[in-house]
């Protein structure tokens, strides 16, 4: 792995709910190397989006709070940093692309105004220079006739074009880290393929690191170098994308891989993980996956299971890792 540009260590995030302070992200650690794409994978409620928002310190406080841990960008601690300092980093060194480009772009301003605002805030350049930069990045994301599109409002763009414009805005200041939270989930598959290709080619050109949050294992297989799998607020496994798909080490990862409908298996019963993920205010004791795990033993229900390092830069949170042989993707 390349030198880490983003390091998250023992991150805890809590929200105040009817059930009191509830920890939705618990002891999450991972790092993203320069130019690397890390996939953060999990089902709804696993804490993957809260984790990605925490990196940018975008958790709404209250009701949320970062209860512990450290987030370092290029060695600088982000947790506890003052708001003006954070604003210097957001959109400049670290940029973000969200799932819903309709809500992440301001409907009252033109695409050009929104991109220029970012450039002028961080570069302090003239309007003309900012406009030139906006045209440049819109061209990068293959918006046809970019100069004339600067005056368009978000609603005048199609879904795919809006997401490309949002990516252009994120790229405007050459970020070192791009955080992309389900950026293709709301798009049609043919448009998703375009956006994935675009992200790949932009990364090759500019070498930014990408933290890619998704529930879609197909997209992970397409784009990511390494993967961290989250379940019930914790990371249960990290590995390179090839290792993870070929030889998963955590039963939950195996369950996810087996649950993907496989090509050419019509009529065969689909593997399903029984039950549902736990609510964050009633986390099971011991391993949080044990109520749904086909390999669980009594000991799995008793003590907390640590994330253990294995050979080959892998980490797994399972006490039976040595005895189990799990099945990978077909």
């Amino acid at each position: 792995m390349a030198a880490p540009i983003l390091e998250v260590e023992d991150l805890g995030v809590e929200f105040l709910t009817d059930h009191g302070w509830v920890r939705v992200v618990d002891g999450v650690s991972f790092s993203v190397g320069e130019g690397e794409t890390l996939g953060l994978v999990g089902e709804s409620g696993s804490g993957k989006t809260v984790t990605s928002l925490s990196v940018m310190q975008l958790i709404p406080v209250p009701p949320g709070r970062i209860s512990g841990g450290s987030i370092r960008f290029a060695g600088r601690e982000l947790v506890g940093m003052s708001e003006p300092q954070l604003e210097d980093i957001r959109g400049d060194d670290i940029a973000m692309v969200f799932q819903e480009s309709m809500t992440s772009l301001n409907p009252a301003f033109t695409i050009g105004e929104q991109i220029c605002e970012v450039v002028r805030r961080h570069r302090g350049c003239s309007r003309r220079e900012a406009r030139d930069r906006a045209v440049e990045v819109l061209e990068l994301v293959q918006i046809p006739d970019p100069r004339s599109r600067l005056g368009a409002f978000p609603h005048e763009f199609s879904g795919g074009m809006r997401q490309r414009a949002a990516i252009a805005m994120a790229l405007a200041c050459d970020p070192k880290v791009l955080i992309a939270d389900e950026p293709t989930t709301a798009l049609d598959v043919t448009v998703q393929a375009q956006v994935l290709d675009l992200l790949r080619s932009l990364q090759e050109r500019f070498g930014m690191a990408i933290l890619f949050v998704t529930h879609n294992l197909g997209v992970v297989a397409d784009l990511c170098d390494r993967v961290a799998v989250m379940y019930a607020g914790r990371i249960v496994e990290t590995a390179t994308v090839f290792d993870l798909f070929e030889s998963p080490q955590h039963p939950y990862t195996e369950g996810l891989l087996q649950a993907m409908p496989q090509l050419g298996e019509r009529g065969k019963r689909l593997a399903a993980i029984p039950g549902t993920p736990p609510m964050p205010w009633q986390m099971p004791t011991g391993c949080r996956f044990h109520p749904r795990c086909p390999y669980a033993e009594t000991a799995c229900t008793e003590q907390d299971i640590p994330l253990r390092a294995l050979a080959g830069d892998r980490h797994v949170r399972c006490r039976r890792v040595e005895e189990l042989t799990l099945e990978g993707a077909q």
């Binding site: 393929a193 197909g218 997209v219 992970v220 297989a221 397409d222 798909f245």
Partner: peptide, 22 residues
């Protein structure tokens, strides 16, 4: 355009990326 959840298969297949939008 549907990505196959297997990195070796997905990265070696020929893909058709359509230009433009519907």
């Amino acid at each position: 355009a549907v990505p196959i959840p297997n990195p070796r298969v997905q990265r070696s297949r020929r893909r058709i990326v359509l230009p433009g939008d519907v």
